Simulated scan of single mutants.
Amino acid sequence: MPQPLSQSGADTAQRVAHVRDMARWIRQRALRMAFEAGQGHPGGDLSVTDILATLYFDAMRYDPANPRWAGRDRFILSKGHATGALYSTLAKAGFFPEDELTTYMQPLSRLNGHPNRVKIPGVETNTGPLGHGMPIAVGIAIAGQIDAGQNGRADYRVFVTTGDGELQEGSNWEAAMTAGHRKLSNLTLIVDRNRLQQGAPTEETVTLEPLADKWRAFGWDVEEIDGHDIAALLPLLDGSLARAKPLCIIANTVKGKGVSFMENKAAWHHGIPNAEQFAQAMQELEA
């Protein structure tokens, strides 16, 4: 099976450079998809890109030729509206042809506004209604824990990315309590902490802080990092650090990352650039 780059012998500088190149391509492709479709969620696509690129092009073990391989690491994008970034990542990773990205949100396309596991190889579960992905990830991690205890074979890891506004859904905290209780060391949550949800800052809607303390209180290890710092993401995601608890990574990100007029603007949660804005954005993302 294909090896993650983290296990290839490449040094850190090589790994960072490779992931950064992939992230640049994903950002450009995701924004083009939203522009051409006239719909999407570009702000959240751009904030989560470095996380996706690090997972798929350095850390995770998977086989695009055999998407349901039992030994694969599992990833769930709970903030399922960020499909521009997810589909671009899956296509670049080889799960389906890159030219299919041009069908994004078109009639009869399988690349819908929210991912569908029945239609799209590499998608672990349907997401979209917020608060669903984290509980499903906990269930998958429990299954892996049980299998490993019974036969010693299940060594896959489970990753889930939520939005920060999504954490206002109570189902996440029920799942967090269960994961902490069961000490699911095979589970990693990455919170895309861009501090903006649809229409307003998270702290004006329902206060999340002190977020790190809340996760620790539920029995999790917690790391707070710059979510665009690939060198900081690598050791937290590549499995090289042994843990006895589930891990929550609070990845401080920027909504609309890489495009000056989009950054930290709630309007770009689902705003679509016009032709002039798109040209400027693509130029900036090339840098």
Rank of each mutant, 00 (worst) to 15 (best):
R15W: 10
R15H: 11
R15L: 14
V16Q: 04
V16T: 09
V16I: 13
V16C: 05
V16S: 04
A17D: 12
A17L: 12
A17W: 08
H18V: 06
H18A: 13
H18D: 00
H18W: 11
R20E: 15
R20G: 03
D21V: 00
M22I: 08
M22G: 00
A23F: 09
A23G: 11
R24K: 13
R24H: 01
R24W: 02
R24G: 00
W25T: 11
W25G: 00
I26E: 05
I26K: 07
I26S: 04
I26R: 07
R27S: 03
R27V: 01
R27W: 03
R27Y: 04
R27A: 03
R27T: 02
Q28C: 09
R29H: 06
A30M: 10
A30V: 10
A30G: 11
R32A: 14
M33S: 06
M33N: 07
M33D: 03
A34H: 12
A34Y: 03
F35R: 14
F35W: 14
F35P: 04
E36G: 04
E36L: 13
E36I: 02
A37H: 10
A37W: 11
A37Y: 10
A37D: 10
Q39T: 14
Q39C: 14
Q39G: 13
Q39V: 10
G40A: 07
G40R: 12
G40Q: 07
G40M: 08
G40T: 09
H41G: 08
H41T: 07
H41Y: 14
P42S: 09
P42N: 09
P42G: 08
P42T: 11
P42M: 10
G43W: 01
G43N: 06
G44F: 11
G44M: 12
G44S: 14
D45V: 10
D45R: 09
L46C: 05
L46A: 03
L46S: 05
S47Y: 08
V48A: 15
V48P: 02
V48L: 15
V48W: 02
D50N: 03
D50F: 03
D50C: 01
D50Q: 03
I51G: 04
I51S: 06
I51L: 12
L52D: 00
A53I: 00
A53R: 00
A53N: 01
A53H: 00
A53G: 03
T54Q: 06
L55F: 02
L55T: 00
L55V: 03
L55E: 00
L55N: 01
L55C: 06
Y56S: 09
Y56H: 15
Y56L: 07
Y56E: 09
F57W: 12
F57V: 01
F57L: 06
D58R: 11
D58V: 04
D58I: 04
A59G: 10
A59T: 12
A59Q: 13
